[in-house]
Nucleic acid binder design. Structure first.
Lengths: 228, 228
DNA sequence: TAAAAAAGTTAGTTATGACTAACAAATTAA
DNA sequence: TTAATTTGTTAGTCATAACTAACTTTTTTA
């Protein structure tokens, strides 16, 4: 009920930091998210993050004690979710209307998500008829910042004989995304685990009559629904 | 034939300055465009423009002598035209697909024109089937930066009895754009000059069975084709 | 043509957001 | 439980791009 609308008085950098903290908090659930971890994630120095954290605390977006873990206020979360909404809507637009491929969208969406216009993003949403998921399978928050959390398990968590459906991929690496589409995997692909090799945890999978061996690292970035 | 592709290593500010110089040079044809004029146009101090001009000269986008007039190199013009292309394509998208009105598009397009992605803008162009003019009637440069210059005359340059067609409006002021659409004028409206009042140069016009009196200042910002 | 006005320049300051280097606190391991 | 390592903080620097104030050059006009 903080009615201070904070009409987007945030710089691009401030927005980037809030989004990064939000995403680290999701990834590691309730594990401590610290200053150095944030610096690593954003590829800046710990001194830079330390500085920005101070500013975001002063502005009421971040809470943390000295030497303690980082947390977001409701206001901070709200900013982050709005950024994620924008990012995912733009990715959807780029893929579905402008012929962008999975691996091409991220960098451009990273720029577009900082455009400040409520009307722009809500109209884009309407234009695409309110898509529920982005091209990588991630849920798109609605105009009120509401979104459902779909419990995701990684391909690497399954065992021999399991059958699953690809529901999302980690969009953090262009190389990975290229790789995924090059071997022919796509959203909704049905994947069967043929074998998990004890030696290096590599996994032999079958999908669409293709048989491939993927590494543990690869499987960690593929999110699935277990079917059988 | 400068093949140094200058892969958009320009900051948002540098781009803004180049575009501003380009537009001042068009508006006043071959008249001197100076430092203070640029500062006025961009609403910054003359010291700021002076500083930026130095940088842009060093980078090879601007040419000028000390205390002399500003000019753009081919490279500088090319950057400006690409920005104008982006601006006008985005305005077209916002109006034609996202329900934006004339007066709402400018600010958002001003942000969108700085997004760096060749593919994005060329695909947007294709998606809209290569529009030739933006919503204000201005010509959109093509992917090679080529564009035709349509000689524009202002409504204020006509005389009693003349008939003309509205082909473009100056998009510099939100208030003006709102005003234009509120009285019912739109692109292609046929306008007849009923009377030009000697006292204050106000003009009585008729269009679509509407009769209105507009000021000289208003008429200076309306561009037309003379029909009769 | 000399004084006034306008236009352009320079110097020095500020805020943002990076950085490195040095140091302090907390955690982990011996 | 002390030592080593990791994590976090502080101080000071740099680049960008804005600013004011002071000054110089150019142009205008009286």
């Amino acid at each position: 009920m903080t009615n201070k609308l904070n009409l987007n008085n945030l710089t691009k950098s401030e927005e980037d930091y809030l989004k990064a903290i939000f995403q680290l908090l999701i990834e590691d659930a309730s594990v401590k998210v610290g200053n150095n971890q944030l610096a690593d994630y954003l590829k800046v120095s710990p001194a830079s993050t330390n500085n920005m954290i101070k500013k975001l605390k002063a502005k009421g977006y971040v809470v943390s004690e000295k030497y303690g873990k980082l947390e977001l206020t409701e206001e901070g979360k709200s900013v982050a979710v709005r950024l994620i909404r924008k990012h995912r809507l733009w990715e959807t637009f780029l893929c579905n209307y402008l012929n962008f491929t999975w691996d091409e969208v991220h960098d451009v969406a990273e720029q577009l998500e900082h455009i400040k216009s409520r009307k722009l993003i809500d109209e884009l949403d309407r234009f695409m008829d309110f898509p529920k998921k982005d091209p990588h399978g991630e849920v798109i928050p609605n105009a009120n910042g509401e979104y459902s959390i779909i419990p995701k398990i990684t391909l690497s968590s399954l065992s021999e004989g399991d059958v699953c459906q690809l529901i999302a991929v980690n969009d953090g690496s262009v190389h990975f995304l290229k790789y995924v589409s090059e071997i022919g995997l796509a959203l909704s692909s049905e994947i069967k685990i043929l074998e998990v090799r004890e030696f290096d945890k590599s996994i032999r999978i079958k999908f669409d009559n293709t048989i491939e061996t993927v590494t543990r690292k690869f499987a960690d970035n593929v999110f699935v629904n277990k079917v059988v």
